[in-house]
Design a binder for these strands. Structure first.
Lengths: 250, 250
DNA sequence: CGGCGTATTGACTGAACTCAATTCAGGTGG
DNA sequence: CCACCTGAATTGAGTTCAGTCAATACGCCG
């Protein structure tokens, strides 16, 4: 299929061939123009024909499923650099909406798949993405299955803190672009419980609010301990301050 | 990497090359001998070097994670034909133990990966497996995030009913090889809640017990409705009996 | 038949949910 | 510039579903 059918399929390669021999998976998306979505706008819907894969280049996306009587489960938030719709099923498993204004690149599945065929070096990167997604899903199952409200919120804050660490190298600040309802639907809680839990963390001096969507982490060690995934290893060290390499990997 | 490095890597291919040009991914495992595990025995542990992938040929496996203070989350049960350890991370994301006596084939990751390189036709099958795993994980997130105890148990029973449907083509019987504790740790509940919920389903005549680990589904439509993922489509039909194609797909 | 682990049942508790009232912040228009 | 307005967030009061703790029943195996 690799070489035999190549000439027959060449007409579809359009986008992908414009960027010959990409080294990184993201580069496959460079050839297509960026699309813009306003906050709240939908990108695709669960059950749609899964014709495209996407790369977020700006903004934040939420992916979610809706079940009976309108209950919504947000299975993830996606940031710049993340790929969406990787699952090679013929229909999307979830819906995707913009949380903030979003810019992304949309690539038809066929040229994407062909790029993977054509440049074997990209395949491990693709695997790695899918495996990361799987690992994240598993962690989320743990959170939803066994963690208390406080542990869930703490885990979420740590997640965002880690993610933003690249952008804001110094200063333990977190920005929450999404509404409390989004957080609640991600954490398997209600708005009220999320709100109350944050209030409690603030009261205890673990975090301190800087507007409703920004917080400073005053006690990173404490916050980490509250996540509840303490391996015995981490548990023993986080009482002491200045173990920053351990607390803030990467 | 495909052809250039082939001769250099040929010495590792041992197992895979004994079954030349397999058509199905499972056949890659045929060359290695089967190993046996007793009920309760561990196959690998979270954090171990992920050197192997496995194919279950008999019995049932549970995969799980342990978090702080010993809380356990079972992320899945694996049956004959299922592959385990597919994630191409360098360490296992979870532990695996035999629920029942298990026989499985263990294949080193390298020949497995090489088989995928060598026979491109296997790759879509591999993708499909990983994507199925992803889809299952997402459904589980929905279950854990938003479903009531009753919905969780009903969903679990339907899952097993569907899975066993291949083996027991007629008669709506479910076999639960795992303990109530396993079920509880899979469904994010306690033993007592699982037990009470089952009792309630029995009292309402939805299912009827045939020993502690076997049940007959008396009202499949009702059970499906109780799962709580009712699309409006399924919701409208399941009041009526004899819509078996819809209720029991495949 | 007795013993032990698993499952069930019961009584009570509590964490998170629901419903409702208030406060806050950001945007608009006078 | 400020006052108002609106949706979002917070806070409060009461409820509920599932968890906890404890007692009992079942069933399997020696």
């Amino acid at each position: 299929m690799l070489s035999v059918a190549y000439s027959a399929e060449a007409k579809h390669v359009t986008a992908a061939r414009l960027a010959p021999q990409p080294e990184r998976l993201e580069e496959v998306f460079c050839a297509v123009p960026r699309e813009s979505f306003e906050a709240g706008e939908g990108v695709f819907w669960e059950g749609d024909q899964a014709d495209h894969v996407f790369k977020v280049s700006e903004g934040v996306l939420r992916v979610f499923k809706i079940i009976a009587d309108g209950r919504r489960v947000i299975t993830g938030f996606l940031y710049a650099g993340d790929l969406v719709g990787l699952s090679l099923k013929d229909r999307y498993l979830y819906s995707a909406e913009a949380v903030t204004p979003v810019r992304l690149r949309r690539l038809a599945r066929k040229p994407f798949a062909e790029a993977l065929e054509k440049w074997p070096d990209l395949r491990p990167q693709f695997f790695a993405r899918v495996c990361d997604e799987m690992a994240t899903a598993q962690d989320q199952m743990v959170l939803l299955s066994r963690k208390s409200a406080e542990e869930r919120v703490a885990t979420f804050l740590m997640l965002l803190a880690r993610r933003l660490h690249g952008c804001h190298p110094i200063g333990r600040r977190i920005h929450l672009p999404m509404s409390r309802l989004d957080m609640a639907d991600y954490l398997g809680l209600t708005i009220e419980t999320v709100s109350r839990t944050i209030t409690k963390l603030v009261a205890r001096g673990v975090i301190s609010p800087e507007g409703r969507h920004d917080f400073a982490i005053c006690k990173p060690g404490k916050l980490l301990a509250l996540c509840g995934d303490g391996d015995s290893y981490e548990d023993t060290i986080d009482r002491e301050p200045k173990m920053r390499q351990a607390i803030w990997p990467h």
